[in-house]
């Protein structure tokens, strides 16, 4: 059953550009896909380790800026006598560097802030995103500040020297985003359904007990932060080379909020949750725009969100799962890591 569903999903996703000829909708799907990747990465921290990072957009933006800057090249006069110049790098190399740099900042934030947990962690992450935004805004020599980095080169494919193809068109960009999304999903899935993921979930569920059996809190939280930040950085890189212009607004708090909404409504701590939430809240604004005025749009958006959170506090995916199990019987061998979210009733009994 599950495999059939999965194949259907994949078939739909893979054939979209063939039947969806409206390029505007394809564009929406691409940006939605990019944000869904970011939401999946946030879910690793928020859903599986239970750490609320409200500065997640920082990693997205760092990935975007790093990748954009390296592919454009830059020339910095650091001191009177010292110039730091970087020649334009191939896009794929810049993209990988963006992932690494974002991951590195994930490690830094992990190191600093997992000493201060709970509310303090939230504050540290928000501040971090704000600081990075201010840097992007004010370090004009490097980032062009509010004038934005423009003419960012798109992705190129091919064998160097033999044949190259630069992808300006929507269709190949769609497949690129889909590919990165699937890869990110697989990475997260591998981690979460392993001993590593069990350790993360154990820390979320009962930290004293987890440490008493030898699970190193810092180590697993930092690991989650690094992987999460790196994947967010990949999403940022995709964004930069697809939209091809970025400015410091990429670091706005509202984007973090969007990611959090995607994760919470879809079902935090489930693998499918951020995908479902990401698709809904990526596409919903566009659908609303087509028939409602701007004020009405946001009211409907907000009301819809509140309804989901109110009636399905664990999110859409866990709700569907328990509905399915109630009618048809248990899904074939529930994935252990997700199980903890699958039964809201018992959880409230604590």
């Amino acid at each position: 059953m599950k495999t059939a569903l999965l194949c259907l999903w994949l078939a739909v996703l893979l054939t979209v550009p063939l039947w969806l000829t409206d390029l505007y909708f394809l564009h929406i799907l691409i940006t939605t896909g990019i944000f869904t990747i970011a939401a999946m990465s946030l879910n690793l921290l928020l859903g599986f380790t239970g750490q609320l990072s409200l500065g997640h957009v920082a990693f997205f933006g760092i990935g975007a800026y790093t990748s954009a800057l390296l592919s454009l090249g830059f020339d910095l006069q650091l001191t009177e006598s010292y110039r730091f110049a970087v020649a334009p790098k191939p896009v794929w190399l810049a993209f990988l560097a963006g992932i690494v740099v974002a991951g590195f900042f994930g490690w830094v934030i992990g190191r600093i802030s997992f000493k201060v947990r709970g509310a303090y962690f939230v504050i540290v992450t928000i501040s971090f995103a704000e600081v990075v935004r201010l840097v992007a805004l004010n370090w004009v020599d490097l980032t062009e500040g509010p004038m934005a980095l423009s003419a960012i080169p798109p992705f190129t494919f091919g064998i160097p020297g033999l044949w190259e193809e630069t992808i300006y068109k929507k269709q190949p960009n769609y497949y690129l985003v889909l590919g990165v999304a699937i890869l990110s999903y697989l990475v997260i899935r591998r981690l979460v359904l392993s001993r590593v993921g069990r350790a993360m979930i154990a820390l979320r569920e009962n930290e004293p007990l987890a440490t008493s059996v030898g699970i190193d809190v810092t180590r697993y939280l930092i690991l989650a932060a690094v992987v999460s930040a790196a994947i967010a950085g990949a999403a940022g890189g995709l964004y930069a080379h697809y939209v091809r212009i970025i400015d410091p607004d990429i670091f706005l708090f509202i984007y973090t909020v969007t990611m959090v909404i995607m994760v919470i409504t879809g079902g935090k701590g489930t693998l499918a949750g951020p995908i479902v939430g990401g698709l809904i809240f990526g596409i919903l604004p566009v659908v609303l725009r087509s028939f409602a005025g701007p004020e009405i749009q946001w009211i409907i958006y907000g009301a819809f969100m509140i309804l989901i959170v109110f009636f399905l506090p664990d999110g859409i995916v866990p709700a569907i799962r328990s509905w399915w199990e109630g009618r048809v019987g248990p899904l074939a061998e529930p994935e252990p890591a997700e199980l903890s979210n699958a039964r809201p009733a018992e959880r409230q009994a604590e």
Partner: peptide, 15 residues
């Protein structure tokens, strides 16, 4: 671990 199965509890213990 209240929201994990007994089996998963042990698997976590086996870390």
């Amino acid at each position: 671990f209240d929201t994990n199965t007994v089996f998963e509890n042990i698997l976590i213990g086996l870390h």
